[in-house]
Write a protein that binds this DNA or RNA. Structure first.
Lengths: 117, 117
DNA sequence: TTTGTATGTATCCAGATCGGATATAATGAA
DNA sequence: TTCATTATATCCGATCTGGATACATACAAA
């Protein structure tokens, strides 16, 4: 089985998993998603991106899949990736961890007007 | 001035700033706070902790202060730290960044029952 | 056809960061 | 005195990152 408990995530690793949680994507699209979501403040860069993808595949959190056919012109360079069940659980764990952090930040008055109600 | 825009934060750096946002504290207390907040899943360890504190001080995000006198027995080993205004802004920025990430994770269905309403 | 630009993946390197071990010392209780 | 806990500090190997570089395909324009 590729199951058990997921290995610890790096910050870049979570960014990639989060992008893939919205649907299968190829590397370059992941890069753009991260850039847009952060308003340009976080950028992966090719080095970190493809290295991270390779590690996630090696750890069983992500797998490569053939183009979903619903893609338009079919660009032969693209390599698509998909979350595995293990990767999904890892992303959930990390998201909950981050949510706890955000709650604490909110409680410390670091956020404008959040979930205080 | 120590102002301008705050330098980028490392994950460990934010953990420390978040702990200090709740009030001045000494290093060991910061370590325990991080451990408890994460339910034991994140541990700083002395190496990362004191190295990070030194860097934050060097960057002007944190300053050392004398024991607040409201402390009980007065342990001469303890060194207390306090957020600077710059450090507070850096923590705010990072907290907002993380909140955006958590929102995205929620939108992708990675969180149990969050702010979806 | 040729040229040029954007897209897409991949690897390499120097520097930054981290976890854990180790060292040292003061505190407080037995 | 003895001992475990608290507290700070430094060192080392391993990991992670950003940016440069390289290379190839797609596509539009000339």
């Amino acid at each position: 089985m590729s199951d058990g408990k997921p290995p610890p995530l790096t910050p870049a690793g979570f960014q990639v998993l989060l992008a893939l949680a919205r649907g299968n994507a190829h590397g370059y699209a992941v890069m753009q998603f991260v850039d847009e979501l952060s308003g340009g403040e976080i950028q992966l860069g090719p080095g970190t991106l493809y290295r991270t993808l390779a590690r996630l595949v090696a750890d069983g959190l992500v797998r490569e899949v053939s183009a979903d056919a619903n893609e338009e012109p079919h660009d032969s360079r693209r390599r698509y990736y998909q979350l595995t069940p293990l990767g999904n659980r890892a992303a959930q764990r990390e998201a909950e961890q981050l949510a706890r952090l955000v709650d604490a930040a909110d409680g410390a008055g670091l956020l404008p007007k959040r979930r205080s109600a």
